[in-house]
Nucleic acid binder design. Structure first.
Lengths: 341, 341
DNA sequence: CTGAAAGCGCTAACAA
DNA sequence: TTGTTAGCGCTTTCAG
């Protein structure tokens, strides 16, 4: 009686390659990882066997044995945001040649969900974690602090990061925009943005800074229009129409992001409103979209690509090895065609 | 001599929880996974110990022991595309209550890179793979076929999937659009889209179908304008300007996607061109962006949300258990305001 | 309801 | 340059 043939649907193991090539499992392992010295003959034989069998290594076993995982968890609030693809590009660029791989998780601007995603990710013992914002549940902060791996919080530097942070100060960004608007002579300023109960802390901080500068100048926001759900041009139009119907005498519309700002701009142009003469507009983010509009919306660049790059460099240990650091980038203001000069 | 204290930075193990709670590792494991019967007292004690220690399970060890991984690999060409966030939403929605977690990989429209991403993903032994398109390298197809897990190719049904596919026929979509355009009386039709050497197979298939209908009607594409890199409104504007300068007598512009189509539309409106009277326009994708434009671009909906949902259902085994299947969805044509009625 | 033993597939460390 | 041994931290299986 010969022993039964192995289940053909069972994934192949190192042992299969070892048997097929007549080389020990250990040497096969070395060849496949390019570790240690192996003779060219042996190497060839092993590679040939692995290729012809269609062997795919089991990283689960490898990671358990070596206590090393080449994964970096990246936790962002949303994929549809336009903001994060660019951050991801920066991250991938840098990780590309480090052997590290980004793995994306989405928190939907929800702290509980974020906590679960962090827990899930940490349970795979990644080499590092990059996550958006500095506001997290206590449990999240505790987990991250305990994890013993590099943790970089991105986008925002207003607050206390668990370890390191790379971002801009949204508070200062709001101030800067307010100063530009007041400097241009606008006085009756309205705000259009996310409904604040939702946890978009960065938008809130921008608004805080914005309002502070206003009140120093003896001004305040004269009307507001909130929305919920995703941003879209259409929503920007609707909000703008509603606000201007209600408060026709405002002379500036400050939007919490470029997408709704662009919608508002289109609405104003459709309705023959004198922009920026009678009415000024501004958004936030420096979205590529804006470049194609009939007129360029005033905005601030959030340094997304650079943030991604710097964060990845910290994880990859290209910067100061392991030392916590906070990198605050400086967003640039673009007056576009919608703020008087 | 007492034994040295364990490294405090070492991640906690089941054993630590076991010792802290005075319950065997096995029972701790059962509690943490909600498996098997455990007395309420024991359960409480274990949970309390785990929580106070801040224990995060090691899924690597768990997966190796149980031969089960709750991950689903999702491989898409690009994050910045606007197309894939919606697919992801559909996937996440369905996986949400199955205990499965999507993990995203990006191939950058590059077959070699896709192959590497597939290899990486399979090496983590996921429960399923969802990937865009039906064109893959031979090695990729072989790996997927060997993997012994559900594999769903999405977006496109023109071709032979490895196992299952959910999508639309881009070839038929192109035909349908051409029929509508010819039916509306346009005759001098131009194409604006990606430079074809790049591997956007779906755009190519749409163009194939489009051209076939044209040639049956004795027509052909009278001019073309290609671009490379990402789509943007600005690029759409530039291409449109270039093409109309060169061929002022065309009466229809067929764009390979909505983003450049929208840019073209804005350019036409800026230049007082009579749309859709003198010049018709159409794109592809059904992007939300279009709803906020001054005029609505004609387009076809690619059923992205539905595709994501169906694909995830196959992976989750909610549909016919394991049987290969091909689901072809029917894209809907929206004439918008840029095709004569 | 609880525990002990065996082993998942691989790699570190050491031996030859 | 190659092979052997002993786990990595967990779950399966089986025994109480």
């Amino acid at each position: 009686m010969s022993k039964p043939p192995p289940d053909p649907r069972r994934p192949l193991t190192l042992r299969d390659v070892s048997e097929a090539s007549g080389v020990s499992e250990m040497t096969v392992s070395r060849v496949l990882r390019n570790r240690g010295d192996v003779s060219d003959t042996t190497r060839e034989r092993v590679l040939e066997a692995a290729r012809s069998l269609g062997y795919v290594p089991n990283k689960i076993a490898g990671a358990l044995a070596s206590q090393r995982v080449n994964l970096v968890g990246v936790i962002i609030p949303s994929l549809s945001n336009m903001v994060f693809p660019e951050v991801m590009t920066g991250i991938s660029e840098v990780l590309e040649d480090t052997g590290l791989q980004p793995v994306v998780g989405v928190s939907n601007y929800d702290a509980d969900r974020e906590e679960r995603v962090i827990y899930e990710m940490l349970s795979w013992r990644p080499s590092g974690i990059i996550l958006a914002g500095v506001e997290h549940s206590d449990a999240s902060r505790a987990m991250l602090a305990q994890a013993g791996i590099p943790v970089v919080e991105i986008m925002d530097t207003d607050g206390t990061p668990v370890v390191s942070a790379v971002g801009i100060s949204h508070y200062r960004a709001g101030r800067k925009m307010a100063e530009a608007i007041i400097g241009a002579g606008y006085r009756r300023i309205a705000f259009l943005g996310t409904h604040m109960p939702v946890a978009d802390h960065r938008a809130r901080k921008r608004l805080d800074g914005f309002q502070e500068v206003l009140s120093r100048a003896g001004l305040s926001i004269v009307d507001r229009e909130y929305y919920t759900g995703g941003s879209s041009l259409l929503k920007g139009r609707e909000m703008t129409e509603a606000l201007l119907k209600r408060s026709p005498d405002v002379d500036f519309l400050y939007y919490s992001n470029d997408m709704i700002g662009a919608g508002g701009l289109l609405w104003c142009l459709d309705h023959g409103i004198d922009v920026p003469g009678k009415l000024g507009l501004a958004g936030f983010n420096g979205m590529e979209l804006l470049d194609g509009l009939p007129r360029k919306l005033a905005t601030m660049d959030a340094c997304r690509l650079e943030i991604g790059r710097r964060a990845a460099e910290i994880i990859a240990g290209k910067r100061s090895p392991g030392a916590p650091e906070i990198i605050e980038l400086e967003p640039t203001l673009d007056l576009g065609d919608t703020i008087r000069r």
